[in-house]
Simulated scan of single mutants.
Amino acid sequence: MNIKYLKGFKWFDLTNSINKEIEIRENKFQMELSQQQKINKTFIQNVETNKLIQQIKSKRNKKRNADDGSENHGKDDGEVDKKKPKVEIRRTFQQRSVTTNRADADREIKNKNNQSVKLNSVLNSIF
């Protein structure tokens, strides 16, 4: 080495700069590695979710086939079979009328009198 041409240069400066470069390189490598691990983790989650959805679809198809007494021949839920009758609605719920006490609401939906009657009847039953 030609140390005599490097006045004021110390060996510590050279090792210190090399150590900083190595540390920067290792940090970049760790960052890339963590990004790849996140990508792999999300990919695996997506694959597992897809498997779960496919299992649910196949169970639904089997249940429909068992109920109908016919086979679907490998059709997905997305495909519509026009020969199948529509599924009957099993539950119906009693609907309530829309009421509100807002000042800017239409008069038809406001139900101030009905609420006061209900309140009076409740208060009368209590007292």
Rank of each mutant, 00 (worst) to 15 (best):
L6W: 11
K7F: 09
G8R: 11
K10G: 00
T15A: 01
E21C: 13
E23R: 06
N27K: 15
F29C: 11
M31Q: 10
L33E: 10
Q35D: 06
Q37F: 11
Q37T: 13
K38A: 15
I39C: 05
N40W: 12
T42Y: 09
Q45F: 04
N46Y: 10
K51F: 04
L52K: 07
I53T: 01
I53C: 00
Q55R: 03
Q55Y: 03
R60N: 09
R64P: 01
A66H: 06
A66E: 14
G69Q: 03
S70P: 04
E71I: 06
N72C: 03
H73W: 03
H73N: 11
K75Y: 02
V80L: 08
K82M: 10
K82T: 07
K83D: 14
K83T: 15
K86Y: 07
V87D: 14
I89A: 11
T92G: 09
Q94L: 10
Q95L: 12
S97F: 15
S97V: 15
T99S: 05
T100K: 02
N101T: 07
A103Q: 09
A105E: 00
D106G: 03
E108M: 08
E108V: 04
K110C: 01
K112S: 09
S116I: 14
V117E: 02
K118Q: 07
K118T: 09
L119W: 08
N124A: 12
N124L: 12
F127K: 04
F127S: 15
